[in-house]
Design a protein around this nucleic acid. Sequence first.
DNA 1: GGTGCCGGGTA
DNA 2: TACCCGGCACC
Length: 390
Amino acid sequence: MCVLPSWSCLAEECQVICWLWRSLLDPCWIPAHGPAPLGSEGWLGEPPPRQDPASREAVLRVLDAGLEQYLALHSAMQCIPVPWHRKLSGKAGIDEVMAAAVLTSLSTSPLVLGHPPATHAPEPGGEIWKEAPAMSSSCSSSSNTSGDWSWDPPSDRSTPSTPSPPLSSHVPGTFLPTPLPDEGPDEPNGTHFIFGEPIPRKRKNSTKVMFKCLWKSCGKVLSSSSGMQKHIRTVHLGRKADPEQSDGEEDFYYTELDVDVDVLTDGLSSLTPVSPTSSVPPAFPGPEAPAPPLPLALPIPDLALASPCSPPGPPGRCHVHTDHAYQGCRTPPRPPVSPSSPTPPPPKPPAVPRRPRGDAKKCRKVYGMEHREMWCTACRWKKACQRFLD
DNA sequence: GGTGCCGGGTA
DNA sequence: TACCCGGCACC
């Protein structure tokens, strides 16, 4: 409950906005009741004090207006992954000062915060935001305790800073996302807007290519092909993460998704925030949205021991159970890639060599056409004989 | 030409 | 998914 991702917008003004938007998005955050439910969950340090109850609509209006001003004044300033203290130590431009003033006035709005601005408006010393640098060293940091919005099990969180788009293209309420952990430094453009603006404001080129694991009961969605390959390699194939040890097989087990970020964010914004204790991220309302929330972490305890041919796995793997499993090692399924996909199509799977004809007599030869009912199913279907294997 | 079976269609 | 078949490669 009441948890939003720790947006990593590191400009102090943005942090204020984050607070404000958080209060909008968090059903518990503009309470007429009790203390802040999130006071200790690590959101940029101390939470702002409670304020008088205000309607969401009113707050929304104020915020929207304020953000418009903010963006107008502050278009040159970007939400860059500069640590908070560095940001403060630098010379703030006039835009920043004005933006800060706007935000300050915003934050002091009786509708928004019933608290003196000094409490959470930026301060030169950054004392209020002492904890900010911990997460500000990287916009990609998931150091929040307010819920892991990434799609991976906790792994290497030392993802380097990710350049951010300019604020001018940065829609209010859309904060720097938490990049997917699998996204390595080789993917500097991996920007994923996991949370969107509450106000409908369309963006251009909002399609984001994601990569979805096709492994049975996995469905993991990552933003980078390399990350997905690593995922498949390590988790499903039980191999080492070293890409040099890859034979390209993992290419078969993921597909690309064109995710409309607007749809995505709109969908997410309507979600109830997840509990900080929940390790399950919210469902990813991509093009395959009707599907239930994807299990993003495989429940297989010892994947390293899993044989590549062991279930669960995608169909087509080397696993012949019955007489009907005549297809043996077929080429794994590969859903069609959208022609609009900006990424080049993955390499074609190697052509399956036609199996050499064995010397063994098959059902047709053994039983003859007149006893076709005695053939194995595969032979009857003109498939590779399963009774008389070579 | 007979055989095996891949790829694709249909219900 | 089960079933069927066109068509191709191999013998």
